[in-house]
Design a binder for these strands. Sequence first.
DNA 1: ATGAAAGCGCTAACAT
DNA 2: ATGTTAGCGCTTTCAT
Lengths: 341, 341
Amino acid sequence: MASSPNNRSRTIADVARRAGVSLATVSRVMNGNPSVDEAMAEKVRAAAAELNYSASPLARSLALGKTNTIAVVVPDLENPSFHGVLRGLSRAAARDGYHILIADSAESVAEEKLLAVETRRRCDGIVLCAPRMAEADLQPLLEELKPVVLINRDAGSVSTPVVAADHQTALVELIDLLYGYGHRSLVYLAGVPQSASNARRIEAIRHYLDDHRDVAIQILPCGVSFACGYEAAERVLATSATGALAFNDLVAMGLMSALSERGVSVPGHISVVGFDDIPFARYITPPLTTASVPGTELGEQSWHRMWDLLNGRAPGHAIFFRPRIERRGSTGPVRLSEAVR
Amino acid sequence: MASSPNNRSRTIADVARRAGVSLATVSRVMNGNPSVDEAMAEKVRAAAAELNYSASPLARSLALGKTNTIAVVVPDLENPSFHGVLRGLSRAAARDGYHILIADSAESVAEEKLLAVETRRRCDGIVLCAPRMAEADLQPLLEELKPVVLINRDAGSVSTPVVAADHQTALVELIDLLYGYGHRSLVYLAGVPQSASNARRIEAIRHYLDDHRDVAIQILPCGVSFACGYEAAERVLATSATGALAFNDLVAMGLMSALSERGVSVPGHISVVGFDDIPFARYITPPLTTASVPGTELGEQSWHRMWDLLNGRAPGHAIFFRPRIERRGSTGPVRLSEAVR
DNA sequence: ATGAAAGCGCTAACAT
DNA sequence: ATGTTAGCGCTTTCAT
């Protein structure tokens, strides 16, 4: 049952020899070049089949100058926010015969750039998923990485396609939802400071405050993980807020977990909203009110933008998905006793 | 701000020319070969730096016969069970300078083999994460894919390292837990029939039944997703079971969701246990009793096994992680009224 | 229609 | 210590 004695895989030369033709002819046949006599082509195909030959992707890549592979950089492979994106991207790319290289930057802003540049060299293009780096660093990097697609982050230039969720609008809608419940004092548990989507949301908050002088929203530095949300509970309770806006569902769930341990009722004492609508948001207790971001579609569209770029088409317009607000059990009317405190 | 006029990246020849040395010397310097005069080496490094040169991974791969990349095949990128594995694998591999190619087989048993073979050609080795294919198909495939590491599935041969969770033992412990609560009539919501880990668990159930004549465990065909668990609720309720063992946490959560909609109390009316301990298992209501599988460690160990293989070392012994039983709120004593029904 | 040969960018014998 | 050269496996002019 062992494999053939000589384990090295067959080369085009083996096939050529066996079929009694030149390398070029084999190459032509394998690539479906019609300028080959059908009889001879058949001979070549037979030889290839007998030898179980298939061309080395590596050698082809070198000769053709393309790898049929793209890379995607994410801050953390285990963060559920990225799973949908990854799946959508990977399946869409696969349909076009492309492969996916993944790079996990381990949330390290410092390594992100190096990782991207290094990974980029092994493929034809790169998808950056919500990079943490500063705007000033991003610009030159995008130039260097081309073709590149940006997910959930604005590119300064039009030459980089963007596929993103409309965080601002969704956040405003979430605030409105709380406002409708009577909440006037809120906290926002911010993501990492470098995060672009975080910046956009803070901007949205500022605008909201300008338009609603009866509302107060305190910004609390936090993070993107469950643990961050958990640890923020103390500080949230120290405020007079009756509603908390978490950077994402993970943070919201961490917060709710800590609140629950302290016997603080949600939404009785405080309402909590998340962001993303990760698969389990609806199954926790109480089910999490959140803004549903279509991760799989983000991934698919990212591929389509990349595909356009790879085929020399002009970068398409930025695509924004409007998240859908999922009103669930973690939000409710402000209690009178709370409202007046 | 545009990049250099000629956008093609620099080659070793550019550096050689600039430094006034031969290609070989540049290659030696770039690879840290000590047999180069320090002064000349410095000149080369300077030239390389000025040209912002770095070697083409593609060309190196072809010349060296290795890509510094391994692939991992998973049935579904969005299934949380695999996230820990992916992260552990990817980070561990990165520490050794290796890259990860991911392939999502979209749960298709038919495509799995082809996908693996095709992907394998682009890298140095492959990690198969719980392949669904039949044992008979797996054997020849493993031979063809070498080097290969198998996660959560036994290889027939010793030449393929295995890194897995000990599903049998854990399942028995879960059953014991329910038994201790007085449950005697159970259902097992089975995974896909082809699944090896499913087969092992059914085996474990048979043994358990042999040893405990007072227990009945009915096996219900189900699947691996939330939706499968959800749809199984009806059938579960149609049995007289007071406890349900789900193939994984997703299935358990789907089941619990459907039960909750029907007003069936967990664990009051029926106890439910999952498997894997995905991050949110503890945050649903009631928190899910489950067997905690250390995904990240599975991933890390898979890399270590692969690393050994890549370095010509003999395949290490199979590694089994004993899952830890997490007793949470979804399990409880059988109600007297239920016990006698 | 087919073949010979020159790349693709790099490494590693083999000279010197 | 350095340079020359022949690969790695494939594609693609350019001849014929």
